[in-house]
């Protein structure tokens, strides 16, 4: 995974709540068997509307998506994270994320930042008033900075460390080989197996 320390880029205001993963990347895109090439599917239905924020020239090239509450609900498709990254987003800000989406984002180095709804709305106002407004998402100091905004955010220390270092979860887990093997050897015999009963 690519490490994330700090990122500065333009904010893209997405004034929608409950942005489900079917909106982020519709199901027909999920037939692809790779992790790339999803950028054209990002918000595919909404992008048919010329007024949609990603179609406004002033917001081209933005890298920090600022969305309403309950972002990433619904399907567990990690393709939603890949689509956001393939399109160029480095971070998403919302007052609440769906659990699976958040887990997926942190495993891919897409930083999901939880801020109070008032701060989200302040960022929306800034980005709409001046689309060139830059926002800094600083994982080292756990801060989001923009003109007039200096907001702290929470992220558990372990997740932060893995992001800062760009660590591979599987390699970390495999360091516990002995503990896994010991657990396996003590599992009850009645536990189900998928091989012939």
């Amino acid at each position: 995974m690519e490490a994330f320390t700090t990122h500065t880029g333009r904010a893209v205001p997405l004034r929608r709540s409950n942005v489900d993963t079917d909106q982020i990347i519709p199901a027909h895109w999920l037939k692809k068997v790779t992790r790339d090439g999803f950028e054209d599917g990002l918000f595919e239905a909404w992008r048919k509307d010329p007024e949609f924020v990603l179609n406004q020239s002033a917001h081209q090239g933005g890298t920090v998506l600022v969305a309403g509450p309950d972002f990433g609900t619904g399907s567990s498709r990690e393709h939603a994270v890949w689509a956001l990254q393939n399109y160029g987003f480095k971070a998403v800000v919302s007052s609440r994320f769906a659990d699976i989406f958040r887990g997926n984002s942190l495993k891919n180095g897409l930083l999901t930042v939880v801020l109070p709804q008032e701060t989200v709305e302040e960022l929306w106002r800034l980005a709409e008033a001046d689309p060139a407004t830059e926002v800094t998402v600083d994982l080292v100091r756990r801060k989001v900075l923009a003109p007039g905004v200096d907001a702290d955010f929470e992220l558990d220390e372990n997740a932060r460390w893995r992001l800062l270092e760009g660590l591979d979860d599987i390699s970390l887990t495999l360091k516990n080989e002995e503990a896994i093997a010991e657990f396996e050897s003590s599992r009850a015999a009645f536990k189900p197996r998928t091989t012939a009963a």
Partner: peptide, 17 residues
Amino acid sequence: GIGTSQVEHVLATQTLP
């Protein structure tokens, strides 16, 4: 429900953090 990175993690280790 888990994402694809976690699917790979479970395939490789049969565990999940």
